[in-house]
Simulated assay, not measured.
Amino acid sequence: MNWKKAMTATVAISTCALLMSSTIWAHGYIEQPASRAYKGSNALGLNTNVGSAQYEPQSIEALKGYPSAGPTDGHIASGGVAGFGPLDDQTSTRWHKTDIKTGALKVQWKLTAQHATASWKYYITKQGWNPNEPLKRSTLQEIAVINDKGAKPAANVSHTINIPSDRSGYHVILGVWDISDTANAFYQVIDVNITGQGTGGTTPTTPTDPGQPSANAWSPSMIYVGGDTVSYDGKTYRAKWWTSGEMPGHSDVWELLAGLQ
């Protein structure tokens, strides 16, 4: 009967719309150093048996509010999201690791759908952690918070975080992208092998004091985050959020610091 055909068509259209919505709202992963999920994707294939991460490393979306809320202990790597459970497997040999050093580490996100952002938060496993136990809150130490205050980021977002000097060997870094206008966040873990001492450096968690600016000349090729200051055309500016290539004095991302002309 025609009504049966119409109902079948309606169900099919609804299913397609749901699948399309899931794809469209699949949002971001850490590509440098490559996250556990991204290393398991078809693009890299360095990790195996990763569930849905093989096709969607960007889709680990769960409630925000970590560490007081969000995914539970033992399910942090997967966000507790159905299909991503294999990412929670935790042994000293299970995952491919990226060699890094202590000190300054560049972390770069690839955003497949950009959202107004509340903050970016980073954690690392504590000295003496057990890599053969499930990942849990008590295992992780906060090392950086970058507040974006609702700004919409670019497709590629970079931060420089600081790896504590007392870490060595295998560790896990957790990156959390808190969305401003939804109840959710995106979770990514990175497996690293810390091989020695680096150059140091930290990511500022509060804006630079406008009364005592320290600014290098603006460069169109540099990446800046909220709180960074630059000099341009005889004036000093401070970045309100992540930016690259946007000229001071010609973009809302740059704030002219008071009293500097």
Rank of each mutant, 00 (worst) to 15 (best):
60 I>M: 04
86 P>F: 06
121 K>D: 12
82 A>M: 15
112 T>L: 08
87 L>V: 01
134 P>V: 08
70 G>A: 13
125 T>I: 12
128 G>F: 06
133 E>Y: 09
73 D>W: 07
113 A>R: 15
122 Y>V: 03
124 I>M: 09
109 W>T: 01
149 K>W: 10
92 S>M: 13
156 N>H: 08
153 P>N: 03
139 T>Y: 13
142 E>F: 02
130 N>E: 13
112 T>I: 02
77 A>K: 03
130 N>A: 09
146 I>W: 03
143 I>P: 01
106 K>A: 08
72 T>M: 12
155 A>G: 03
142 E>A: 11
114 Q>W: 01
145 V>R: 03
117 T>S: 13
112 T>E: 05
137 R>H: 11
118 A>K: 15
155 A>Y: 06
90 Q>T: 10
141 Q>R: 06
77 A>W: 01
151 A>D: 09
153 P>W: 01
132 N>A: 10
98 T>I: 13
107 V>T: 00
149 K>R: 14
129 W>R: 14
64 K>Q: 14
109 W>C: 00
95 W>E: 04
142 E>V: 05
105 L>R: 02
67 P>T: 12
110 K>S: 05
95 W>D: 01
145 V>Y: 02
77 A>H: 03
71 P>E: 13
65 G>C: 11
66 Y>F: 15
135 L>V: 12
99 D>M: 00
155 A>N: 12
121 K>Q: 14
156 N>K: 09
62 A>Q: 05
91 T>Y: 07
146 I>C: 04
140 L>N: 04
101 K>G: 01
99 D>K: 03
64 K>S: 13
70 G>D: 12
128 G>R: 07
85 G>Q: 13
146 I>T: 01
133 E>S: 15
66 Y>V: 06
62 A>M: 12
147 N>R: 14
143 I>H: 00
131 P>K: 12
125 T>S: 14
100 I>P: 07
111 L>E: 05
155 A>K: 08
117 T>H: 11
88 D>F: 04
146 I>S: 06
132 N>H: 06
115 H>R: 15
104 A>I: 02
119 S>I: 04
70 G>F: 11
92 S>Q: 11
108 Q>R: 08
76 I>G: 08
70 G>C: 11
135 L>H: 08
131 P>D: 10
124 I>C: 07
133 E>L: 15
78 S>D: 04
97 K>A: 13
155 A>T: 07
97 K>S: 11
117 T>N: 13
102 T>F: 01
136 K>Y: 05
103 G>V: 00
86 P>D: 01
96 H>R: 09
126 K>V: 12
149 K>S: 14
135 L>Q: 09
94 R>M: 07
117 T>P: 11
130 N>L: 05
124 I>H: 05
72 T>N: 10
123 Y>M: 04
66 Y>H: 05
98 T>M: 12
61 E>R: 14
85 G>R: 03
147 N>V: 11
119 S>W: 05
147 N>D: 14
115 H>E: 08
92 S>Y: 09
151 A>C: 04
